[in-house]
Each structure stands twice: as structure tokens, then as C-alpha cells.
Write a protein that binds this DNA or RNA. Structure first.
Lengths: 204, 204
DNA sequence: GTCTATAGGACGATAGAC
DNA sequence: GTCTATCGTCCTATAGAC
């Protein structure tokens, strides 16, 4: 961030932040524009000044949040594939995602709402390109699946973390002595370990 | 199936089938009761004779579809954990899921809608128990993540299959020579291979 | 750039006849 | 067991004043 980004407006930025939070928590459909507006202390009509439709807010979220993934993809598409490049792709993806867990969660949990939206399709394209970069050329179906799981494990680590933090499913019998993790940093370290292991199975 | 199950009624069964299909395709929120009723050639009010609420339909779906998972969990909870038991759990889970891909897809894509519903919580409990059985006792956070990814890979294989069948993302440049797969059987074989590999990383 | 006011429609759910 | 009819609520989105 060497240049000062000029946010199109402060309110616009705040709308995106609040919308992402609420969409992630409760889902796209269950979050009404009234709720977003109330949280910001404005009215619904004000939202419509900044965004043409509800779906357009999603588009704004993707545009502002997905930039690091694009950079990783652009980098990867210039490399000759090798196991080292593959591991570096995973490392960069994980690093970019660490601060962007809400975006991942939002996409993970709102697939139906996003399937028809252009923003959703764009994001899906990004993920498919990332998977292709990781799997390498002439990949078998198994290798495609391994690449998918390697990237997904980044994502899943944050869900496990979140469950641990919320103390979810504490009512279940036999929790055993399983290790919980309590910081984003710990979760990301573990995620990177497992993701690299799984991607190491490619072309095995 | 040695005994003849008496379906509570044929219409009830048909409602569940259609609802599962539509919920999986378009999501829970975007599927209206009118749409389900129309597809069946009945009215909304008829649905309310069989199910108290829209959410109750989800409950019906889970009850009828999740039985094989319960059997696997019950079996697993009686075993002393070992790598062999772990692999057998994955094998049984995959076998049960092969015909039940729509259910997995439904849960994968409707997390927000299901978070507060009792049916959704019940299903989540099932998955947590499966993960705990696979990860074994005294699991590290990494092992928990590995177990999660092993089970998820079954699920993801069906998504890849579905994308291949739909010819999705064909517009993306550089499809390469990646291998596509065209039958559920092939996808399940691959899924089992990868899931076993990943679970083999546990306690590595 | 934000407001009030409201159009206009879809939805889940219920009442009561048959 | 299925119907018609409707209630009450909530929604996205727009028009127009300030």
C-alpha cells in the first residue's frame, strides 16, 4: 500500500464493511437493507445512492476484498509450474486470506445467493484458476481434487478456529483431549502445514 | 432394507424429494413453498398438512436421508480407534454418501439458513462426531484439520464431478489437459483414494 | 448525500369449506 | 388430504423534497 487509495467515499466503504459482516454472519438473503442501514445510522434510500441494487453491494465487496488473490493468480500464471511454485502459491494464498477470512466465509456460506450473481461467478472463476495453478499441467482427477483440498484447508482451518472460539458443540459427548487453537496466527500456521502436506500428494 | 418401510404417505415422500432438489439447486431461502407445491401439482396449503413449517421440511429431509451416517457413527463409537478403523470409517462414509450427494450439497450450500434451525444443528453435530471419530483421541489441531479435510474431500469430489458434467467454467482460458471424470463411480473411487491419503497424514 | 414516503410484490402461514 | 382465499409482514426499489 504505497499509494494512498482514495476510497470513493467513506460511507461507501462503511457500507461494504457492515454488509460483509452481516452477510457472513446471517447470510445474504436473511440480511435486509434496512438492517445494514440501521447499523450505519442511515436509511435504506441512502444505500441506493451508493449501490444500484443489493447485489451490487456484493460486487463492491468482491472488488475491494479480492485484490490479493488476483495478485497471486497473476504471479502464478507467469511461472513455470514446479512443486516449489505450487507451495509458494499456497503460501501466498494463505497469507492473503489470513486477514480476509470474512470474505471466504461469506463465499463459503452463500453459494446459492451468489450462483447467479456476476460477482459470485467472478469469484468462482478466481478459485478455479487458483486450483488449476496449484494442480499443475495434465492433472489427473485425483490431482485436481488434491489441489482443491489443499486450498480449502486454509479456509477450513478458520472455521475450526471459529468453532473453538465460540465453544460450539460443547454439549457433544466425549470431547476427548483434542487440542483447541485460539489465535488466527496459530490457525494459519496449522493450515499452512496441512495444505502443504496435501498439495505434496500431487503427482505422487 | 429387509423390512418394508411404510412411508408416512406418498405425498410426504414426494415433497421431501422435490424440496431437497430445489433447496440444493437454488438454496433454502430462494425456494418458496409455492414453487415446491407447483412442481408437485398441489397448493401451498397442502404442504402445511404434511409439515408444520418450512423448516420442518428440512427436518424431514435430514431424518430420511441421514440414516446411513448415523449407522456409521454408531459403528465407529463402538470401536477402539486405530488407523484401520479410521480408514473403514471413511470407506463407510463415502459409500453412504455416494447416493446421498444432494443432501451433502444442500448442507454445504445452505449453512446460513441452517445455522438456527434444529435440523441444521443436528446435522452439524453428526459431522462433528464423524470428524472426532476419524481424528482419533488426543488429536492435535493439525490432526483435526486433516480429519476434516479427509471427510470433506468425499464431498468435494462430487462438486468437481458436477462442474465437469455441466461444462462449467469452460470459458476460462487454459483448461490444459486436466482429466475430467464423468460418472459417480469414478468420482467416488478418486474421492476414496484422496480421502484415505489425507487421513493417512494423521499422527504422521 | 441523505431524507420521508410509498409503491408494488412475494412470502410464510392460517381459516375453513369440501 | 387437498382446496380457495386471505391475512399480515417484510422486502427491494423508486420518487421527490431538502
Amino acid at each position: 500500500m504505497s499509494t494512498t487509495q482514495s476510497p470513493r467515499s467513506d460511507t461507501r466503504t462503511r457500507i461494504i464493511a457492515v454488509a460483509l459482516e452481516l452477510f457472513s454472519e446471517q447470510g445474504y438473503e436473511k440480511t435486509s437493507l434496512r438492517e445494514i442501514a440501521d447499523r450505519l445510522g442511515v436509511t435504506k434510500a441512502a444505500l441506493y445512492y451508493h449501490f444500484k441494487t443489493k447485489d451490487d453491494i456484493v460486487h463492491g465487496i468482491v472488488q475491494t476484498m479480492a485484490a490479493p488473490i488476483d495478485e497471486t493468480i497473476a504471479w502464478g500464471e507467469q511461472q513455470q509450474w514446479s512443486p516449489e511454485v505450487r507451495d509458494e502459491l499456497i503460501r501466498r494464498f494463505a497469507a492473503g486470506m489470513a486477514e480476509r477470512a470474512p470474505l471466504l466465509r461469506f463465499f463459503h456460506e452463500n453459494q446459492p445467493a451468489l450462483r447467479e450473481s456476476s460477482a459470485g461467478l467472478e469469484f468462482k472463476d478466481r478459485m478455479i484458476r487458483m486450483i488449476r495453478l496449484v494442480q499443475g499441467p495434465d492433472a489427473s482427477f485425483e490431482d485436481r481434487l488434491r489441489a482443491t483440498m489443499a486450498l480449502f484447508s486454509i479456509n477450513s482451518a478458520f472455521f475450526l478456529l471459529k468453532n473453538d472460539q465460540e465453544g460450539l458443540a460443547q454439549h457433544l459427548v466425549d470431547p476427548g483431549n483434542e487440542a483447541k487453537v485460539h489465535s488466527v496466527h496459530e490457525a494459519m500456521d496449522a493450515a499452512l502445514t496441512v495444505a502443504t502436506e496435501i498439495s505434496g500428494l500431487i503427482k505422487g
